[in-house]
Amino acid sequence: MNVMMNLLVGVQMLAALAMIGLILLQHGKGADMGAAFGSGSAGSLFGASGSANFLSRTTAALAVVFFGCTLGLAYLGHSRPAGGDSLLERAATQAPAAPAAAPVAPASEIPAGASQKPAAAPSTGAAAGQPAGAKAPASGSADQIPNK
Rank of each mutant, 00 (worst) to 15 (best):
Leu8Glu: 01
Asn53Val: 14
Phe37His: 07
Gly133Lys: 10
Gly40Ser: 11
Ala16Gly: 13
Gly47Phe: 05
Val64Tyr: 09
Leu71Ala: 15
Asn53Gln: 11
Lys135Ala: 15
Val11Gln: 07
Leu25Ile: 04
Ala42Tyr: 14
Gly77Ile: 01
Phe46Val: 02
Ile23Ser: 14
Leu88Asn: 13
Gly129Arg: 06
Gln12Arg: 14
Phe67Lys: 01
Ser49Ile: 00
Ala63Met: 13
Ala31Gly: 08
Pro122Leu: 09
Ala114Thr: 14
Gly30Ile: 07
Leu8Asp: 00
His78Pro: 00
Ser141Cys: 02
Leu24Ser: 13
Pro81Tyr: 02
Leu17Thr: 08
Thr124Lys: 15
Ala36Gln: 13
Gly10His: 06
Ala121Ser: 14
Gly140Lys: 06
Arg80Leu: 09
Ala120Phe: 05
Ser108Cys: 02
Gly40Tyr: 04
Gln94Met: 10
Ser41Val: 07
Leu87Asp: 08
Met13Arg: 14
Pro103Asp: 03
Met33Pro: 01
Pro122His: 06
Tyr75Ala: 13
Gly34Asn: 10
His78Met: 07
Thr70His: 09
Pro111Ile: 01
Pro106Ser: 04
Ala127Asn: 15
Leu55Cys: 03
Gly47Ile: 04
Ala119His: 06
Val11Ile: 13
Ala136Tyr: 05
Cys69Trp: 00
Ala35Thr: 05
Pro122Lys: 12
Ala126Arg: 14
Ala100Lys: 12
Ala97Val: 12
Lys117Thr: 08
Ala61Arg: 01
Ser41Thr: 10
Leu25Val: 02
Gly133Cys: 05
Val104Cys: 00
Pro122Arg: 11
Pro99Leu: 08
Ser56Cys: 03
Ser79Arg: 15
Val11Gly: 02
Ala101Asp: 07
Thr58Ile: 03
Leu45Asn: 09
Ser139Ile: 01
Gly40Ile: 02
Ala105Thr: 07
Leu88Met: 13
Pro103Ile: 01
Lys148Asp: 09
Gly140Phe: 00
Ala107His: 03
Gly125Pro: 04
